[in-house]
């Protein structure tokens, strides 16, 4: 909550309902008219969600039981659960799932661990330095993904790239499996680090100084204070960042994979979302792609619920 009216909000509200208290019993038509306004205000937004999020979700469920090549002229062929069976038997799927999980874990380094350290350090700095560091670390957040991919590919170029010249050892970053995986993670991390630092810094700013001051008075060391006071109070922010990383990492790496590696070399940098894209729009196997998408939807839903539960259990609320 960062609104300008937080203090006022804390005041007790006399009555939550704004619907005017009906004096006498109005006619049903009038009551309907009175109930209408909120729905009218919601109509554009709900309409958009219905058409562009929930209708396609339902359509994808339907599509997953058909075989269809995306051409409007060819009929959809019902195949029952075949798409799902094929999916689970496909080694590509497990490979991509494993890679997605590994890349997400590696990304957590850039979206949780490193931002925490940076935010703690910068918050200890007084004066202009703090703003300068944070502005510089934030700048990559603003770079469009394709521009980021372009400049990194240029820097990682094996014959004349800045990175290989710097380390004095030519590494073919994009075309060897290991280095390509590292490159995708580091470039995505570079895009996200500044945002995560900002979020953690905001979380830090929301922690009351009195807790740490009290701990210091009790002669706790800096490290002890950080470990036992600051980090627990910060944990809701950190769990939030982890959740964002898990839910978004597949999408965030997509532009990089699409422009830099196309999932290669030897499908070392593919992930579940890139696989879906390939199945749907390169192999034109719409039903298959839909069934895979739904499977991932359910899986991510489970992971997200688990993380929310975890955060409820782990977090300490500052009351």
């Amino acid at each position: 909550m960062t609104g300008a009216f937080v203090e006022i909000d804390a005041l007790p509200r006399p009555s939550a309902t704004v619907v005017p208290v009906a004096a006498a019993r109005p006619s049903p038509a009038r009551r309907l008219l009175r109930a209408l306004p909120p729905y009218l205000f919601l109509l554009p937004a709900i309409g958009c969600l219905a058409v562009w999020t929930y209708r396609p979700l339902a359509a994808a469920v339907n599509l997953s039981f058909f075989s269809w090549n995306l051409l409007p002229t060819t009929p959809k062929e019902p195949v029952g659960l075949d798409n799902y069976r094929r999916l689970l038997e496909l080694p590509d799927l497990w490979h991509a799932l494993w890679l997605t999980a590994a890349m997400t874990l590696a990304l957590l380094l850039f979206t949780v661990a490193l931002p925490t350290v940076v935010a703690l350090w910068t918050s200890a700095i007084r004066g202009r330095g703090r703003a300068v560091y944070r502005a510089m670390i934030f700048a990559p957040v603003l770079v469009p993904p394709v521009a980021g991919a372009a400049v990194w590919q240029w820097m990682l170029d094996p014959t004349s790239g800045a990175v290989d010249r710097l380390i004095g050892h030519p590494i073919n970053w994009i075309h060897e499996p290991g280095p390509a995986q590292i490159a995708i993670v580091v470039i995505t991390g570079w895009h996200l680090l500044g945002f995560a630092v900002l979020v953690v810094s905001a979380g830090l700013a929301g922690i009351d100084d009195e807790y740490t001051a009290a701990a210091m008075l009790d002669r706790a060391s800096r490290w002890q204070t950080t470990r036992w006071i600051t980090l627990p109070l910060l944990s809701p922010t950190l769990v939030f960042l982890a959740l964002m990383t898990v839910l978004m990492s597949g999408q965030l790496t997509f532009p990089l994979i699409d422009t830099l590696t196309q999932g290669g070399p030897d499908s070392a940098t593919t992930n579940v979302y890139y696989l879906l894209w390939e199945w749907g729009f390169q192999n034109f196997d719409a039903g298959f792609a839909a069934s895979a998408g739904l499977l991932f939807f359910v899986a991510f839903g489970v992971v997200a619920t688990g993380l929310v539960r975890l955060s409820d259990r782990l977090t300490f609320h500052d009351n």
Binding site: P56, A59, A60, L70, L247, Q251, W277, G293, F296, F300
Partner: peptide, 17 residues
């Protein structure tokens, strides 16, 4: 809930629409 629906699930039906 829209946060949970991956873009890649809705892309095919939206594309055909």
């Amino acid at each position: 809930g829209t946060w949970l629906v991956p873009f890649q699930v809705t892309m095919l039906p939206n594309y055909t629409l």
